[in-house]
Amino acid sequence: MSNEIERFFELQDEATKAAFVENRGDELTDILVAALEDVFVILGGGDSLETIH
């Protein structure tokens, strides 16, 4: 893994921890939703991002 990718994940971890510690629930939710959307794109091949309930 390149240093750039490692640094990206470190920054994401820091942002998540800061949001959690500072009780910024909306921001934390946005981070988690974005991560889930990325997972669905990877698993689904990026065909569509339909709302899933």
Rank of each mutant, 00 (worst) to 15 (best):
L28K: 04
I42S: 03
L11E: 00
E22Q: 04
F40G: 07
T29D: 15
D30G: 05
E6N: 12
A15S: 05
D30S: 13
T29G: 05
E6M: 05
H53C: 04
N23D: 13
F9M: 02
E6V: 01
I31N: 14
E4I: 07
D13Y: 03
N3W: 14
L32C: 12
L32S: 04
V21Y: 12
G46C: 10
V21P: 06
V21G: 00
I5R: 13
V33K: 10
F20L: 14
R7P: 04
I42L: 14
G46T: 08
M1A: 03
F8H: 01
L43G: 11
I52C: 00
E22W: 11
I5W: 13
L32V: 13
A19M: 00
V39E: 01
I31C: 00
I5A: 15
G44L: 03
E4L: 07
L36M: 08
G44R: 11
V21N: 10
D47T: 15
E37Y: 02
E6C: 06
T29H: 12
N3F: 14
A19K: 01
I31F: 12
A15R: 06
I42C: 01
I5F: 15
I42N: 08
S48M: 05
F40D: 03
L36A: 10
M1L: 05
T51Q: 11
E27G: 06
E4N: 04
A15P: 05
R24Y: 01
D13A: 12
A35Y: 09
A34H: 07
E37T: 10
G25A: 11
A15D: 15
G45Y: 00
S48I: 05
R7V: 01
R24C: 07
T16I: 13
L36K: 12
R24M: 11
A34I: 10
F40Q: 02
E50S: 06
A19N: 05
K17A: 09
T51P: 02
L28N: 08
N23F: 07
T29A: 14
D38F: 02
E27H: 09
L11A: 06
F9S: 02
E14H: 00
R24S: 08
L43M: 15
G44C: 12
